[in-house]
Write a protein that binds this DNA or RNA. Structure first.
Lengths: 110, 110
DNA sequence: CCGATACTTTACTAGTCAGTTGAATACAAG
DNA sequence: CTTGTATTCAACTGACTAGTAAAGTATCGG
């Protein structure tokens, strides 16, 4: 099941995907999308970011296949392409919490 | 279990961790470490990268808590701090493969 | 103490990228 | 066709960072 070996090409692709998630702004957008498919304008309002900025981030997330894109009239709706992202975030959160817990323990026995 | 909501601070921390893995070079180093704890010099030889470069990447991985550091005499041994990283990579690989499969399917019915 | 080896730090360069501004495109309504 | 709204594109700036070279630090053997 688990990739015992990551080939050179695959490493590049994986790193590229990680980079798509390595930006707080993009994670914030993903988080907003969790409420459901939304237009660019709605995301702009929800996040307080600039329109062009949000549009660019959405394109990057779309290029990395983390969001879907659907045009309807004058609006463009973006939505989550899957839940993997949040599984990834959960693992990271666990990692961070474990680290915090370890640090706490370290202080406790000083 | 799953974080239904990611707070602002947590988003920053998670993005920071993703960034640590968003570099092919660092993934390559992690991959090498899978064979076991190794010195900086051994990693330099295994990867063909510059010494200072490897040292710096290892520090970043250590700061993100993905590798352990142990000094022994004149050598410094780095090792994997856990297997989460590879779980993350596996999910990403699955994502990439699913995407490739979908593209293939798209071509097939043209 | 001296020199050698292993690693880290610092300073630099070149490339990348987030965010912004203003123009361009697409579509809808009048 | 014209106006207005929604989104994207292009150009720019400032910040960050990978890689490298050279100096600095630590540890061991003699």
């Amino acid at each position: 099941m688990a990739q015992s070996r990551l080939t050179g090409d695959m490493i590049d692709l994986v790193a590229e995907r990680f980079r798509a998630l390595a930006e707080p702004t993009r994670l914030q957008i993903m988080q907003e999308l969790r409420a459901g498919e939304q237009t660019v304008g709605a995301l702009v309002e929800a996040t307080g970011l600039g329109t062009a900025n949000v549009s660019k981030h959405l394109q990057q997330l779309h290029a990395a296949n983390f969001v879907t894109r659907r045009k309807e009239g004058v609006h463009v709706y973006y939505g989550l392409a899957g839940e993997e992202v949040f599984r990834l975030c959960d693992i990271m959160c666990g990692h961070i919490e474990a680290e915090a817990a370890a640090r706490k323990l370290l202080f406790a026995r000083s």
